[in-house]
Design a protein around this nucleic acid. Structure first.
Lengths: 229, 229
DNA sequence: CCAAAAGTGTTTGCTCTACACCCATGG
DNA sequence: CCATGGGTGTAGAGCAAACACTTTTGG
């Protein structure tokens, strides 16, 4: 492979993934208990070294599958963290990804390699985490909130069929603020990004709620409000 | 440094920088003529290997200084490109940055290492470029346009003192559309991110134009228009 | 029958957009 | 004096925000 082109003291390269899901009233992220030093026994976000012949996206996908059993979740590159001191072992640069899954997909924890101890933590009750993973999680949370406002990534938090109340609750949890029911419903219906399934769901009490599904043919990206239009 | 922790077949890591400036009526990017294989004699964006003990940001800054002589330009991480086949030498992952400079700062080309041949190309008249640098430039351009709409990065394209007409022209060039003069002036003045210098500039003909300066104490970030507020 | 949640319109204020003329200046 | 470009305000349309009651259902 090499022909004297490359420096020999190259950094090691990892991918790390911040995986989000929605609990009843909180946004949660998956943490893995580290089985090896450094930070043995501490919590960390899932991740690992990039193999020689795989793309970064593929590496993130593979690590996620190995450590959680999940496939086909939403996955997007976040930022690359390369502080020389971020890993006590030496120089390790990590390409961070953020991922979004539904609560149903993530119902049975640690579906990945059996030896792996994993747990979901609400974002405002994180334990001490290894490396600079706290920064990474914070950054990912900010990005999720941001993308929720102008893309349709929010639907990845919900199952395929959902009620408008559930959708609104999901938005409220991530954005951290109350939304007006009538305005919310009007906007989202007018945007044309969801459609009726024709089915209904009954709760404990009260009338039945119409079920909707996300229209993945809808290309939706809100334009940013310009500073100077 | 290592203790058997790390894989030995780790990828090499570079930084590459897309540097923008404004010519009279175009957005331009700096290209370097490669003196070594691979792609010897072809154009490429400035960049190089990350040293063992420097952060990614520092590496980008250093490469930019070495290859252009520029310091203190706006520099922001863009995206990390890691396709296994993007470099014919073997596995090279690159952390791309984008940078913005004023035309004045970049007036004397190739102020860096003397051996380096550099040139500015308008974005719509790029030559063939090495590696996947065309993708990187495209991505950076998109990001610049985008950030111009909701941050104050646009001021980095202009000298410290500028007229409103110059500012509007800069916006029009990057956004690729005409803006209404009265609306533009009103908005930007109401936003409070520039202030009068009290000085004036005379052109060849016509009245003198007031000079403004950017208020760097102004924290300006427009909120995105929500999909579902 | 009662508690809980679903569903539904209108008004008001604000923001965005479109648009045209006068005047100062340098040559 | 004239060509060039700087500077200025208003009216109309569309969008966003605030707001409360009726209906359905399961227990």
């Amino acid at each position: 492979m090499e022909k004297g082109y490359f420096p020999s003291d190259r950094p090691a390269l990892t991918v790390d993934i911040v995986l989000f899901r929605l609990s009843d009233d909180q946004l949660e992220t998956l943490l893995i208990c580290r089985g090896k030093p450094p930070f043995k026994g501490k919590w960390a976000i899932p991740g690992g070294f990039v193999h020689a012949d795989e793309s970064l996206h593929a590496a993130a996908k593979r690590e996620l599958r190995e450590e959680t059993g999940l496939k086909d979740v939403y996955l997007e590159q976040l930022y690359t963290f390369g502080d020389p001191k971020r890993d006590p072992r030496g120089r390790v640069v990590t390409v961070a990804y953020f991922a979004v899954a539904t609560t149903a997909e993530t119902a049975e924890p640690e579906a990945g390699d059996d030896a792996i101890k994993a747990a979901w933590y609400p974002l405002n009750k994180l334990p001490d985490v290894a490396f600079d993973h706290k920064d990474i999680i914070k950054y990912a949370h900010q990005r999720l909130r941001y993308k929720l406002e102008y893309t349709s990534v929010g639907f990845r938090l919900l199952p395929a069929e959902f009620t408008l109340a559930e959708l609104q609750t999901a938005y409220q949890i991530v954005l951290g603020e109350e939304l007006d029911k009538r305005n919310f419903r009007r906007r989202i219906l007018e945007a044309g990004i969801i459609e009726e399934t024709g089915k209904y769901r009954s709760g404990q009490v009260g009338p039945r709620a119409q079920l909707y599904r996300y229209r993945d043919d809808a290309v939706v990206e809100a334009k940013a409000r310009r500073l100077f239009p």
